[in-house]
């Protein structure tokens, strides 16, 4: 399936790169950092997903239960690109890119691969502007390390998420099923 999706002709951005620190709409100080070694951040991210309200799951992720969450993250950990948002030292948001290839060890140029994006923000931190910041900084980080093509799917009825993705420059690329596919070009 790799290499088959349509992408906008023009690159979006530029996007800001992490690290950054800002005050959210509720006056909380939020830090955004890239996690270059995801193994060390994994535990904090697992903790966030344990707290995550399953009513906000999308297409089966995140799974529920600590062991299933751990298995899911460990499966994608080695080759994924991760940016996390924290408040008072705890991870409250996580955005990631996973390469769409059957052989991630063989990637020698990140621009050759399409990257799937997902982003989750803990419920009590939603609607405070954190998702937009997290998303923009993930794309800024991705652009810095040579990623050019990013895609995602979102449930077609999830209008707030679709609006967020459109705001940063994602374009709808197909509507033939329950999931809306969207794509953005960074370079």
């Amino acid at each position: 399936m790799a290499g088959t999706r349509p992408y906008p002709d023009d690159p979006a951005g530029p996007f800001p790169a992490p690290p950054t620190s800002f005050e959210d709409r509720d006056g909380r100080t939020i830090e955004i950092q890239a996690s270059d070694d995801f193994e060390t951040t994994l535990e904090d991210v697992v903790e966030m997903y344990v707290e995550f309200d399953p009513t906000d799951r999308a297409q089966g992720i995140p799974p529920t239960g600590e062991q299933r969450i751990r298995n899911w993250l460990e499966t994608i950990a080695t080759h994924s690109i991760n940016v996390v948002a924290s408040h008072d030292g705890a991870v409250i948001g996580h955005a990631m890119l996973v390469p769409d290839t059957s052989d991630p060890d063989a990637i020698d140029d990140r621009a050759d691969v399409e990257w799937e994006l997902a982003i989750f923000v803990l419920q009590e931190y939603q609607r405070a502007g954190i998702g937009t910041q997290l998303l923009e900084h993930l794309l800024g980080h991705a652009s810095e390390i040579g990623i050019e093509r990013v895609w995602l799917t979102v449930e077609r009825w999830n209008n707030p998420a679709i609006a967020l993705y459109e705001r940063v420059g994602f374009e709808a690329t197909g509507t033939e099923s329950f999931e809306q596919e969207m794509a953005i070009r960074l370079g």
Partner: peptide, 8 residues
């Protein structure tokens, strides 16, 4: 999907 999302 690569991310583990179920796609119909």
């Amino acid at each position: 999907s690569p991310m583990g999302k179920i796609q119909l």
